[in-house]
């Protein structure tokens, strides 16, 4: 059976080679490159969580950075106040639950208030500024403008027996790689489940799903909470690779994650990673070359991609000859 699949489906070969290449990456490149790719994979998980709601249920979250930031802050604060060994695991759980709770609260007010479409985006956009203000003024807990940095270093492994320091680029990279694959598989499982099908039906026609007897606001809250939890998880993974500061919750970061998903192709899951890596590497390349002009180029590129490639890279690939390479379901 498996042999058969491998024979007929070149995409499994491509995937296998890609996986091996990703595994070998830290062995052949520098620590800087490793931590860079690890950071971009974290952003990929963040974009994946947005694709779950934007691409599959039509919820436009223009404040998605709130949940990424909330995850990172929850992780940092937990690491700071839980001084025992193995606190990292609790901190990560905390970093998933806090954004989830915020998502449920927000979802309750907005989805049950029948706020949808672009208006939902506008509300979440306005909330970004508010959450940022809250973080800045609660400086005792969050470090305020300076950001949060004096917490215990996150460690994986079994406390007392074998421990891995997440500040090491290689450890962080493999952790993030495993997390990215796990999140991707989870997202795929969700969208292919019965629940996922209903969610996609909501995207197509909310009223009809309602007439079929589904509780649409409830379902929306559920998928929103899952996405927020995943965003929070990516925020937690970001902690050893970046820096916790109010900048994580900026409008810019919320906008850029939408761009990642749009460039990769919304509603494709893998597109979230493709778009994130493409845009992030492009940005890194441009800003290395043009210290001042790079931002202008990014703006122009964003406009062009949206005008020329409405379906994103994966959508483009889907339409043309690369059909067999990308592991998406043909629908």
């Amino acid at each position: 059976m498996i042999n058969n699949v491998l024979y007929k489906q070149p995409k499994f070969w491509v995937l296998g080679i890609l996986f091996l290449a990703l595994c070998a990456f830290p062995q052949v490149t520098s620590g800087y490159q490793t931590s860079l790719l690890a950071k971009f994979l974290v952003f990929g998980i963040f974009a994946l969580s947005l694709d779950l709601i934007w691409g599959y249920s039509g919820i436009v979250n223009f404040g998605h950075a709130i949940f990424f930031g909330a995850g990172a802050y929850a992780m940092g604060i937990a690491l700071k106040y839980l001084p025992f060994a193995g606190a990292t695991y609790f901190a990560v759980i905390f970093a998933i639950l806090v954004p989830m709770l915020i998502g449920i609260l927000l979802g309750y007010f907005l989805f049950y208030g029948r706020v949808g479409g672009v208006f939902f985006g506008v509300v979440t956009l306005a909330l970004t500024g508010v959450v940022q203000s809250i973080i800045i003024i609660s400086s005792d807990l969050t470090g305020g403008m300076n950001g949060l940095f004096d917490f215990a270093p996150p460690k994986l492994g079994i406390p007392g027996l074998i421990e891995f320091d997440l500040y090491s680029p290689t450890v962080a990279y493999y952790t993030v790689l495993a997390a990215a694959i796990g999140c991707y598989l989870l997202a795929r499982y969700i969208v292919n489940s019965d629940f996922g099908r209903v969610i996609q039906a909501i995207r197509e026609d909310e009223d009809r799903v309602e007439y079929l007897g589904y509780n649409v606001p409830f379902l929306k809250v559920v998928i929103f909470a899952i996405a927020c939890g995943m965003a929070g998880f990516s925020g937690a993974l970001y902690v050893p690779l970046g820096f916790i500061s109010p900048d994580l919750l900026s409008i810019e970061r919320s906008a850029v994650v939408l761009v990642w998903v749009a460039v990769g192709g919304r509603g494709t899951l893998i597109g979230a990673f493709v778009g994130t890596l493409a845009v992030s590497y492009m940005q890194t390349f441009l800003s290395d070359q043009f210290v001042v002009l790079w931002l202008l180029f990014i703006g122009v590129l964003a406009i062009l991609v949206i005008l020329i490639w409405p379906t994103g890279i994966v959508g483009f690939a889907k339409r043309y000859s690369l059909r067999s390479i990308f592991p998406f379901k043909q629908s």
Partner: peptide, 13 residues
């Protein structure tokens, strides 16, 4: 939604 992203690009430019 794409207008939102495109105008974000415009704002940077």
């Amino acid at each position: 939604i794409d207008t939102l992203l495109a105008t974000w690009g415009v704002s940077i430019v």
